[in-house]
Amino acid sequence: MNLEEKLQMLRKKNGYSQEQLADKIGIARQTVSKWENGQAIPELNGLILLSELYGVTIDRIVKDDDECNILLCKSADIDLNKVVSFLVSAKKNTYPVNENKVQSSRMKSSDFCYAENEYTYYDTYLGGEKFTGEEAVWYYDNPIWCMNYTGRIIGDNFNNGFLKEVLLQVTEKFPYRGPQMYTKGDYHYHCKVDGEFVWFQGYEDIFYLDEKIYECYFHGGVIQ
C-alpha cells in the first residue's frame, strides 16, 4: 500500500471529506487532493497534524513495510460513518423512549441494549438524581467506541421528560448527547464538546429560567 492510498483510507475511515480534512488541519482542499493523487507528498508539519488527528504514528503513515501496513489497516478497519449512524439510531431507541431495556448487568443498574446487523449498543447507568454510566458500541464481538458520563440534578423544577426530549434530538453531525442548544418553554439545554468522535470530552446543562438545575460531564472515543 503506497502513501497516497494510506492517506485516502485514513481520511475515509475517520469520516472526513477532503474539504473537512483540509479545514481540520488548516490547508487547502486542493492540497489534500494532490496528496491522495500522488501529485505531492505531505511535509513534516502536515504529517504531524495527520498523525495527531488520526491517532497513528508517522511511521505507520509513511513506511511501506508490511508490518506498518498491517497495523495501519487494522487501526482503520472501522467505518466511522456507519458507527455514527448506528449510534444515533441506538440512542433514539433506548433510554429516551424507555425501550429495549434489558436485565441489569450489575446490582441496581439500569441497562439498555440495541442491535442492528453487525453492531450492538449497550447503555448502563447507576443512580438517580446523581448518576454515572457508560455507553458502548461493539462491531461483531469487538468493542469499538465508548462514552462515560456522570451527572446530577442541582435545582428544583427538573423535568426528566424534557431531558429525554433533548436526547431524542441527537444527530449524526453531533452524536454525543443532545444538540448544542434546545429550548422549550422555560427550559433551556446547552451542550459543548471539545474534540472529535474519535476522542472527545463534553458538558451539558439545563436551565429553568435563569437557574441551572442539571449538569452532566461526558468523555470518550474510539477504542481498539
Score class of each variant (00 low, 15 high):
Lys108Asp: 14
Tyr149Pro: 02
Asp141Trp: 08
Ala28Tyr: 13
Glu211Pro: 09
Glu116Asp: 15
Thr171Ser: 13
Ser33Glu: 08
Glu116Ile: 14
Arg152His: 09
Lys192Val: 05
Ala22Arg: 07
Glu43Cys: 14
Tyr95Asp: 10
Lys184Pro: 12
Asp66Lys: 01
Asn45Thr: 14
Glu129Ala: 13
Ala40Cys: 13
Met107Ile: 15
Glu67Gly: 09
Gly220Val: 00
Arg60Trp: 01
Asn159Gly: 01
Ile144Asn: 02
Cys73Trp: 00
Lys101Cys: 07
Lys108Ser: 14
Gly46Cys: 06
Glu36Phe: 00
Ala136Lys: 15
Cys146Thr: 11
Ser105Arg: 15
Ile154Asp: 02
Leu80Trp: 08
Ala22Gln: 07
Asn14Arg: 15
Leu163His: 05
Gln224Ala: 11
Glu211Phe: 09
Asn100Tyr: 04
Tyr182Lys: 13
Asn157Glu: 09
Val83Pro: 05
Cys146Val: 12
Gly128Thr: 10
Trp145Pro: 01
Met107Gln: 13
Glu211Ser: 15
Glu172Thr: 15
Gln180Asp: 13
Phe218Ala: 00
Cys73Gln: 02
Thr150Asp: 05
Ile27His: 11
Glu165Gln: 12
Asn98Asp: 14
Val88Tyr: 05
Arg11His: 06
Thr171Tyr: 05
Tyr54Trp: 14
Leu53Asn: 06
Tyr203Ala: 02
Arg106Ser: 05
Gly127Lys: 04
Thr31Lys: 08
Gly128Ser: 10
Ser85Met: 07
Lys173Ile: 13
Val137Tyr: 00
Asn117Ala: 14
Asp210His: 05
Phe162Arg: 06
Val88Gln: 03
Gln224Ile: 10
Gln39Ile: 09
Phe112Met: 03
Tyr214Phe: 07
Glu52Cys: 06
Gly26Tyr: 02
Asn69Leu: 00
Ile25Ala: 10
Ile58Lys: 03
Phe158Thr: 04
Phe218Ser: 00
Gly221Asn: 04
Lys12Pro: 04
Tyr54Met: 05
Asp77Leu: 02
Ser109Gly: 06
Asn100Cys: 04
Thr150Trp: 00
Gly195Asp: 01
Tyr119Gln: 07
Tyr121His: 07
Ala136Ile: 07
Lys184Leu: 13
Gly155Ile: 07
Asp66Ser: 03
Lys184Trp: 11
Pro96Phe: 06
Lys6Leu: 00
Gln20His: 05
Val198Tyr: 10
Tyr214Thr: 01
Leu87Val: 07
Ile153Arg: 03
Asp77Ser: 15
Val222Cys: 13
Ile61Tyr: 01
Ile61Pro: 00
Lys91Ile: 15
Asn69His: 00
Arg60Asn: 03
Tyr139Lys: 11
Glu19Asp: 15
Asn98Gly: 06
Ser104Met: 06
Gly161Ile: 08
Lys212Gln: 07
Glu129Met: 11
Asn98Thr: 11
His219Trp: 08
Tyr187Asp: 09
Leu80Ser: 15
Asn100Gln: 04
Leu80Pro: 12
Leu10Asn: 01
Glu129Phe: 10
